[in-house]
Amino acid sequence: MNDNITRVEHLTDDSGEVRELTAEDMAAFRPIGEVLPALAQIIQKRGKQKAPTKERITIRLSSEVVEYFRESGEGWQTRLDEALKGYIADHRKAA
């Protein structure tokens, strides 16, 4: 355990803040199953996604729209997606 404490101290600066990790730091990391096998058994891994349900795009929106949804907190992009789906549903009925 003393070895782990030394490693953690090595990753912090003089004030105790975690410093930026280097490629060397990352290379020294070990899989969670080696370090904490009991925790590794508890953590469930997400299965491979069978088919993408969403498409990654770049879109430019007015700052008013973005601010409105961001102010609603975490999950704002999902709520924006739902609002757009509602718009589509309403306009498909009208057509």
Rank of each mutant, 00 (worst) to 15 (best):
N2A: 13
N2I: 13
N4D: 12
I5P: 01
R7Q: 14
R7W: 08
R7D: 10
V8M: 12
V8Y: 13
E9Q: 14
H10F: 04
L11P: 01
S15G: 08
S15P: 01
G16Y: 09
G16E: 02
G16W: 00
E17H: 10
E20T: 02
E24Y: 02
E24H: 07
E24C: 00
D25Q: 02
A27I: 08
A28I: 00
A28C: 12
F29R: 04
F29P: 00
R30A: 15
P31Y: 09
I32N: 06
G33L: 06
E34Y: 02
V35I: 13
V35S: 10
V35R: 14
V35K: 04
P37Q: 06
A40L: 11
A40M: 12
Q41N: 06
I42D: 12
I42F: 15
I43D: 08
K45V: 04
R46D: 15
G47R: 07
G47T: 13
Q49Y: 03
K50G: 06
K50W: 06
T53F: 06
T53G: 14
T53R: 14
K54A: 13
K54Q: 11
K54R: 02
E55P: 03
I57M: 11
I57L: 15
R60S: 12
R60T: 15
R60F: 09
R60L: 10
L61A: 13
L61C: 07
L61I: 10
L61R: 12
S62L: 05
S63Y: 01
E64Q: 14
E64P: 03
V65S: 05
V65I: 15
V66T: 11
V66D: 07
V66S: 02
E67C: 07
Y68S: 11
F69K: 02
F69R: 10
R70W: 02
R70A: 04
R70G: 00
R70D: 11
E71P: 00
E71V: 10
E71I: 01
G73N: 03
G73C: 13
G73L: 07
W76L: 02
Q77E: 11
Q77N: 15
Q77L: 09
Q77S: 15
R79N: 01
L80Q: 04
L80S: 07
L80W: 07
D81Q: 04
E82K: 08
A83V: 04
A83R: 09
L84Y: 04
L84C: 03
K85S: 12
G86A: 09
G86Q: 03
Y87R: 07
I88E: 05
A89T: 14
D90I: 03
D90Q: 11
D90M: 11
H91F: 13
H91P: 04
K93V: 08
K93Q: 08
A94Y: 12
A94W: 02
A95F: 11
A95L: 10
